[in-house]
């Protein structure tokens, strides 16, 4: 556990806004990319992640102890993201159909058209999986987070990270039959 996060969160609970600012700066990229991977749109990812921080600020006094901040905040972020996805599906908003690609293919030796096609295929395959599988794939494959960090953020045991990843990869491979 990052000690500075615990002490920052404890200070934020006492009303120190500068401490909360440091927490935002530490977690803003993780929050943004987590949400981007799930909603596929940059503006929405910014909106949702920032709203999650605002909710965290308003509710931080209810946080039992500073060391629970990462999983507590991520549960707020996850709820905000899930609520957004549900609302968007109800309204059939095109935001979820992400015209722009939020995944980029980094291997420049592959032709442009092929790179874009592969990214779109992988995005659609991931998007068709249950949310808990999408989360774990985004966090491990695209955010490059380690098992301990993922466990910390999701509030689950380290072993559960491995088992969820196993199921998610198996499901993704099935969807990508023909590409892999």
């Amino acid at each position: 556990m990052n000690q500075s996060v615990t002490s920052l969160a404890d200070a934020a609970r006492q009303g120190e806004i500068q401490a909360f600012e440091q927490l935002v700066r530490q977690y803003m990229k993780k929050a943004y990319f987590f949400t981007l991977g799930l909603v596929g749109n940059r503006e929405d990812a910014l909106d949702i992640s920032q709203n999650a921080f605002v909710k965290a600020y308003r509710g931080i006094k209810s946080l039992g102890s500073g060391e629970k901040f990462p999983s507590w905040f991520f549960s707020i972020l996850r709820n905000e993201t899930v609520n957004f996805i549900k609302k968007a599906k109800r309204k059939k908003l095109e935001a979820l159909d992400h015209r722009e690609s939020f995944l980029l293919f980094t291997d420049q030796s592959v032709p442009d058209a092929e790179r874009a096609a592969v990214c779109r295929t992988v995005q659609q395959a991931i998007r068709s999986l249950p949310l808990d599988m999408q989360e774990i794939l985004i966090m491990q494959h695209f955010q490059g987070l380690g098992y301990s960090e993922i466990a910390d953020l999701l509030g689950i045991p380290r072993g559960s990270v491995a088992s969820r990843l196993y199921r998610a990869r198996a499901a993704l491979k099935k969807k990508l039959n023909g590409v892999i």
Binding site: E21, L46, Q50, N51, L103, F105
Partner: peptide, 30 residues
């Protein structure tokens, strides 16, 4: 194979300005 395919991909990075403005935007919402 799955890892190999996704290892060639990354989430689209926003401009640095997004991170510079991020806290200000959160603070304004508060």
């Amino acid at each position: 194979k799955v890892k190999s395919l996704t290892s060639h991909m990354q989430l689209a990075q926003p401009e640095e300005e997004v991170w510079n403005m991020y806290w200000n935007q959160v603070y304004n919402r508060i």
